[in-house]
Design a protein around this nucleic acid. Structure first.
Lengths: 226, 226
DNA sequence: TCAAAAGTGTTGAAACTACACCCATGA
DNA sequence: TCATGGGTGTAGTTTCAACACTTTTGA
């Protein structure tokens, strides 16, 4: 085994949420070299006996002060180009995609370094550290694709939501307008996507909407097409 | 950096092809511990300055004697459960999916260890080394899903193929019968999936079929549904 | 009373399924 | 001539987009 080169393995996490009707991602301002001052994805080294998803959850909690279990966490893939980190050691990163509902409290209340929610448009407009721009782009593409055929959109909502709130998730993530009436029919018609609670939302403008919960489906039939 | 635990990184490759109207995968009989005598996926350690897809291609060539560039090569994901390898070191594997056309020459003609094409049903019926059964299952699921919305099926064919040959790829991978006439219309109607060459296949039974090449599409509109 | 959001009805277009039917070859 | 696989036509069904319309609230 000593014949083979050891490498260092990190996890990096694309953490998405919707705030102020905008798709945002968690980013950390790097305080030291390399790439000092640039935005980076939250992440860090995997510990010796730690499973990869656990490492992603730990980094999310440690670096950002977020205590909640993400509503969705999946592996994006591994990034291992030989010079992706300018330091001499070989560092391979396993990237994860996490999706959270809009959190009432802002991030960074603890001694978390300097994690911030940043609108996606701002984040993709400037150069990120390492290959994090590529990882972020892959995470966005994965999220956009999964809205079609999986119930991922519910991970952006709290445990109770209206069909209108769910539609706004699709509209924000896809940057598209959707017909409210057809969307309603598709979502309530997709087996196991959402289940009505019998309660109604209060306080909004217009007719109060039925409140729904996530259903048990893992794939949507039929899909919600873009 | 020395504060963090180094790990060893391998690549393992799920290599699929169709031989004798059967979906088959490349497997290697392990000659030493751990898991001596069991089937395993081809793979090995990543070298110090080697990109991950290059490592997958190198292992494919070295361990199996296959010299051709696979028609399709994509990353499946990383497998890093702490005890997935019984040896004391932490070993994380990056898995790839490769798809090849039916090769005229059998594998192992060189001094390749002992790589064999094994029908999927045989391979999934017995215990594999490490977590390779899980990796194989994930690779199969990925391939089955990608037939629907990507031109992956053409990677199982040579550079010229008939619609009937392409249909047999779908039927074998999905273990399903498809209506020949409707399949023909769907495939030729999907923008950029296949382009006619003007030539015709010879030697088969029945009316000679038009020969096609892969088109330029990367996603299929509309999809070929299961 | 009006604006706004929820939700239902309806209609024409598109896609899919099933299957009848013709075509062109080898045996 | 017959069996076999290639390919087109067509009719009925399902799905989907567009949009008119009703419902129910807050201002």
């Amino acid at each position: 085994m000593a014949d083979y080169p050891p490498v260092y393995v990190t996890v990096d996490v694309v953490v998405l949420t919707i705030r102020d009707d905008t798709l945002q991602a968690l980013a950390i301002r790097r305080g030291g070299p390399p790439y000092k001052g640039r935005w980076a994805l939250p992440g860090g080294f995997v510990q010796q006996r730690e499973d990869l998803p656990d490492a992603a959850r730990r980094e999310l909690a440690e670096e950002t002060g977020i205590e909640v279990e993400p509503a969705h966490l999946e592996q994006l893939g591994s990034y291992g180009a030989p010079r992706r980190d300018p330091r001499p050691d070989r560092i391979i990163s396993v990237a994860y995609l996490a999706v959270l509902p809009d959190l009432p409290d802002p991030v960074g209340g603890t001694d978390a370094a300097s994690a911030h929610w940043v609108p996606i448009d701002e984040l993709t407009a400037r150069p990120l550290a390492f290959d994090h721009a590529e990882i972020l782009a892959d995470g966005l593409e994965r999220a956009r694709a999964k809205l079609e055929y999986s119930p991922l959109a519910t991970a952006f909502c709290g445990d109770r939501f209206t069909i209108g709130q769910l539609r706004r998730v699709y509209e924000v993530v896809w940057s598209a307008r959707l017909d409210p009436s057809n969307f309603h029919r598709k979502v309530t018609g997709a087996e196991g996507f959402v289940v009505p609670t019998g309660e109604r939302a209060t306080g909004g403008r217009g007719r109060p909407a039925e409140l729904y919960q996530r259903g048990s489906a893992t794939v949507l039939h039929p899909a919600i097409l873009r």
